[in-house]
Every structure is written in C-alpha cells, then in structure tokens.
Nucleic acid binder design. Sequence first.
DNA 1: AAAAACACGTGAGCC
DNA 2: TGGCTCACGTGTTTT
Lengths: 236, 236
Amino acid sequence: MTNTLTETLMNSGYGSSFSLVLDRQRGELVEAPVKLERKGVSTERTIDALKSHSEAERRRRARITAHLDTLRSLIPATTKMDKASLLGEVIRHLKELKKNAGQACEGLMIPKDNDEISVEEQGGLNGFPYLIRASLCCEYKPGLLSDIRQALDALHLMIMSADIATLEGRMKNVFVIISCKEQNFEDAACRQVLTGLVHQALRSVLNRFSVLQDILGTRKRRRVSIFSSSSSEDFL
Amino acid sequence: MTNTLTETLMNSGYGSSFSLVLDRQRGELVEAPVKLERKGVSTERTIDALKSHSEAERRRRARITAHLDTLRSLIPATTKMDKASLLGEVIRHLKELKKNAGQACEGLMIPKDNDEISVEEQGGLNGFPYLIRASLCCEYKPGLLSDIRQALDALHLMIMSADIATLEGRMKNVFVIISCKEQNFEDAACRQVLTGLVHQALRSVLNRFSVLQDILGTRKRRRVSIFSSSSSEDFL
DNA sequence: AAAAACACGTGAGCC
DNA sequence: TGGCTCACGTGTTTT
C-alpha cells in the first residue's frame, strides 16, 4: 500500500459515476436517482463536511487496526493471518485462558477469612458414575486431610484429587470425591442424602479439630499457624 | 436498522454520482475521470463480477462482526460498547489472564512422577530482607507440612506461605520461607549456605517419612495414598 | 447541529 | 484468470 492520499481519492468511487445502481432482487442495473437536490447547501460546506467525515473515518479505522495489530503481537502464530481468523484465534485463546483461570481460581483462590464448607454434585464426567465436589475453608490444620479421608472412608467414599492452598495460617481445600460402592445415583433424593452426609462429615472433622485446638490453646498457649510456630517464638 | 437489502443498495453511493472527487491536496472538488473505457468487457460480466464481489465482501464483514459479537459475549460489560473500545477491552483481559495464568502455572503445576527438591533465592520483595523459594515434589504424605515447619524452625526460618497441589497420590509443595534472625544476607556465600541447609532439611524430612513408610509398609502391608486408603480396601 | 459509529459497495493487490 | 482480503469514502443512524 504505497498510495498517496490524492491517488486514493482519485481512484475511489469510479464505479458509481455510471449513475447506475445494482438492484440485487431484479439482478440488473437500474438508474440511480441522482441526488443533486442539495440546492440550499453551499459547495464549500459540503466539501468540508465530506473531508472531515472521511478523515474521522480514517482515524476510526486506524484505531481498530492498531488494536488488531496489538492482538496479533499478543497471540502466537497470527502474523500474516486473516483478520477474521485472527479474531477467531483470539476467541479460542480467551476461552482457553478463561477455562484455566476458572479452575485455578475456583479451586485455588486465596482462602477467605470466614470458614466455609460447600458440597455439591459434579456431573458424571469421564465415565465416572458419580462425583462430588467438596470445598472447605478454615484455619490451617496439619493432618486435616488424613482425618477427612478417614471420615469419608466411613461413608465408602474416596478422595480422587485434592487441591490445597494455604495462606497466612488459613487453608482452602477442594476435593473431588467418588463413591466406592455401586449405588443408584439416578435417584436425586439418594444423591442429596449423600452430599448431606459428606457435608456433615466435613463439619464433624472440623469441629473435632477446633475442640482439640482449644484444648491445646488453653493448656499450652500455642497458636497453630505456619506464621508463628511454637519454637520460632523464641526468635525475632 | 430496518433497511431491506434493496433499500440499502438504492441508498448507497449517491454522492459519487456527481462524477466529482475531492482532491485533498488542493482542497477542492475535481472532475473524476469517468472510467467508461471498459469497451471490451461485456456489461453482464461486469454486473456479475460486481455482484459476487459485493456479496463476498458482505460475507466477510458478517464473519468479522460475528466474531466481534462472540467477543462481546465473552467479556463482561462490553455490550453497547464501541468496536474499537471492545477490542481494547479484549486486549486488557487477554493480558490480565495471561499474567494470572503465568503465576498460577509456575507454582502449582501438576505434581510430576519423579521426586524433586529445589531451593532457590527469591529476590527481596515487598521490603522483606531475604526470601527463599523451596519446591518439593514427592509421594503424598499427610502431616509432611508440619514436619517441614519444625525442621525449618531449627534453622530459624519461617514458612510465609505454602501452595500445595495433590494429584493421584503425589503432592507438590511450593514454600516461601523467610529468616527470623537478623543476618548478613549481602554476603552471597552466606546465602548459599542457607539455601543448602534448607535443601538438606527438606531432604532429611523426606527420608524420615520414607523410612517410616517402609516400616509401616512391611509390617501392615498398607499403601499410603489417597486413592486406596486402608479402610476403603474392604469395599469396591 | 455536529460528531461518532456502522454497514455498504468498490478499486487495488495478492495468490 | 477468479477468489480473497483490505482500505477507502460515503450514506445513514445514533448520540
């Protein structure tokens, strides 16, 4: 594109000087109603308006293509790629990143200040008959996970995977749980009972830990935290 | 926009029927060189070409705007937003997500099959004098974290934060550790000694666990894993 | 009134 | 040659 401004202007709109217009429905050329009825407006005004209009439009296009170029630089292997295809790739990457961010944020967000237990069904994916997704946010408690595992054993459940994030003495865990026994999971009521049991089990483990922690706290004045551990109180 | 196709066609290109063109350099209207010198080509051919051309262009535009709409649906608060601004928001979100994905993947990747201990200095951020980043990948061992904390206590070190990911009986931990004592961390040799000590401490904790696990394993034939736990072997 | 945003048809250039 | 993508200027609509 080495056209000068003048060249571009001189070259544009030739086809329309036929005073003919394509009627798509009839498939033929028809006379265009020549709109010279601009009697009142002065020619200079028209020129200025036209000029500023096309210039504004040019600026708008420049803005858009600049952003498009930025996107090209952001997404790999999109140089020399079609404008539409580029946008398609942008969409693909955006969805991909959002998916990753979603599972990263959902499972591993910073633990909140308030305690939280949530248990919900997870649609039977990958041929697994029935999965439960349990989330737990509480004070940091070493050994909590093994206690939870034992509690779930009693329900004939297995922890398939666990994501654990800890920060400033608090922890957030997200488990994916599967049933060990053959059961009728088509029944919604049955499923609801199971999730209720899981919730109850997690709650009881948490309570047990809290009681234990209270005892230790009153007896030894020890605060369970990875920040200020027992022996490190001697220093700093 | 309630124009029919025909109306749109009839309305477009009126201005060009003046046979005048704006010469931007001279700032005035000049006669457009009427390009009727298409003597050889038949009118039908021209019509067909023009028709297919504009139709193709229309399809291309439709493709692009469709992608743009998809982007609008993907990114919040972009309805009724300018096309250029929309692309700007897309760029912003893309950068944001890429940044998050980067830091999420760095510390919390899926645990590998081979055991790994890595200890490295972490540039003194946030005004903290000296930080150590320790990464540990091994079999899943409940209670490992508290043992590590105790071992680090002996070195007068504190775990500031821990990211833990577990999958299929294996775990990967990433710790950020800080010194409790005032020390000369300007000296590179001193720092290297410290990281070495941390590495050694982690190794010893890991070995201790392995030995314990071996004893339990030979005596009770129990496999420590969140997949097949002791009591769940009775079912399934 | 006036500026911004959009869809349109068209000429140029590139396989 | 045809099929395509792109930038352009323009008419229309919206603000």
